[in-house]
């Protein structure tokens, strides 16, 4: 299980502290999933950073009783001088996994060919994304963190990610954040909406969807009136 209790996250700005997450709480059981809907700037990425452990909350507690991945397809930790294989080795060392049995899968999925053993600085954007995705699913986590905005690519890549993540690993838990209500509707069994730093819970995805659309609509309406 993973649980968040009254998480508050504030960032310092010149005009004083700015609260990005305000008393966010939720729980996720092993093998279950949750979608978190939010507009740009709602705090989705901050939530992912706290969940992955990259940053600490200002207050509140995060308990992880299952292994939690780093954000899916996050390639920011790549060193340009390292090869794809080096990066696989690094990640495996950090998580205490033998890298050798994983080489065939990563080579096959990334379709990098000879570039698998070339420095990452010679990779195209698509090659980087494929490598990043392959590495994050090569390690077997109980719960995956998915920031939908990070998994960008063509239709075929999306399809292969879909198969790897939602078919081959359908027994795993995941937390998916997105601004796209349709994505959440497609993959998640329940959903919450992150709005102005607060997390609103709903029994089913449709209720969350309606709330989200209303909020969007209201904001849009307000803006029209202000203009």
């Amino acid at each position: 299980m993973i649980s968040l209790e009254n998480i508050v996250k504030e960032y310092h700005t010149r005009l004083g502290p700015r609260r990005v997450l305000d008393n966010v709480s939720f729980q996720l059981e092993r093998g279950r999933n949750i979608g978190i809907l939010g507009c740009n700037g709602a705090g989705k990425s901050t939530l992912i950073r706290l969940l992955s452990g990259a940053e600490r909350p200002t207050s509140g507690r995060i308990r992880r009783e299952m292994s939690v991945s780093w954000p899916l397809a996050f390639g920011g930790a790549f060193q340009t001088h390292l090869t794809g294989l080096d990066n696989l080795k690094f990640v495996c060392r950090v998580y205490g996994v033998d890298y050798k049995p994983l080489v065939p899968f990563v080579e096959e999925f990334t379709e990098l060919g000879v570039y698998f053993r070339e420095p990452v600085m010679h990779y195209s954007h698509g090659m980087l994304t494929r490598l990043a995705f392959a590495l994050s699913i090569a390690i077997e986590f109980d719960c995956f963190l998915i920031d939908e905005a990070m998994v960008v690519g063509d239709v075929r890549f999306h399809e292969r990610c879909h198969v790897e993540m939602f078919h081959k690993r359908k027994d795993r838990a995941f937390i998916l954040v997105s601004h796209d209500a349709n994505v959440i509707k497609l993959y998640c069994e329940r959903a919450s909406v992150l709005h102005e730093g607060r997390l609103y819970h709903f029994d089913n995805v449709d209720a969350a969807y309606d709330f989200y659309m209303d909020e969007l609509g209201m904001r849009h309406a307000k803006r029209v009136i202000e203009v």
Binding site: S52, G53, Y95
Partner: peptide, 9 residues
Amino acid sequence: LSLMYHRNV
């Protein structure tokens, strides 16, 4: 900084 996404680092 980006390595800190791996919680153990």
